[in-house]
C-alpha cells in the first residue's frame, strides 16, 4: 500500500511517501501500520507516538482500528489547521 505523510510529520520523518507491502491474507489495521513504521528508527518511534495524529484511508478520515488493504492509499498527518 501507499503511505503518505503531511506537514510537520513529513518534515520530522524526512519522507513524504513510501510503499509498505501487505502479505497475502495479512490483516493489518491503521494502528498496526503505525506500530510497524515505528520500528524504522528513533525519529519514527517518537513522531508516530504523538496521540493527536490522524489517519485517512483512500482520502477519508477513519478510526485507527480500520483494516487496511494492499491497494489502499493511507495518509498520516497531524491535526489540521486550515481556515
Amino acid at each position: 500500500m501507499k503511505v503518505l505523510f503531511f506537514a510537520s510529520l513529513r518534515d520530522t520523518l524526512g519522507t513524504s511517501e513510501l510503499q509498505e507491502p501487505l502479505a497475502t491474507g495479512e490483516s493489518l489495521t491503521a494502528d498496526g501500520l503505525r506500530e510497524r513504521l515505528k520500528s524504522r528508527g528513533e525519529a519514527w518511534q517518537k513522531a508516530l507516538s504523538q496521540p493527536s495524529l490522524l489517519v485517512a484511508v483512500n482520502q477519508a478520515m477513519v478510526p485507527w482500528d480500520t483494516l487496511l488493504s494492499d491497494d489502499d492509499e493511507v495518509a498520516l498527518f497531524p491535526p489540521v489547521t486550515g481556515g
Binding site: 491535526p79 489540521v80 481556515g83
Partner: peptide, 26 residues
C-alpha cells in the same frame, strides 16, 4: 461549514516570523 472545515479538512499552516518557520498547532 467553517467549524468542520477547521477540524476535518486537510490543510496545515506554517508561519514565518523573524526569519523562522514553524508549523501552527491545532
Amino acid at each position: 461549514i467553517m467549524d468542520y472545515l477547521k477540524t476535518e479538512a486537510p490543510f496545515w499552516k506554517k508561519e514565518t516570523s523573524g526569519g523562522q518557520t514553524q508549523w501552527v498547532d491545532a
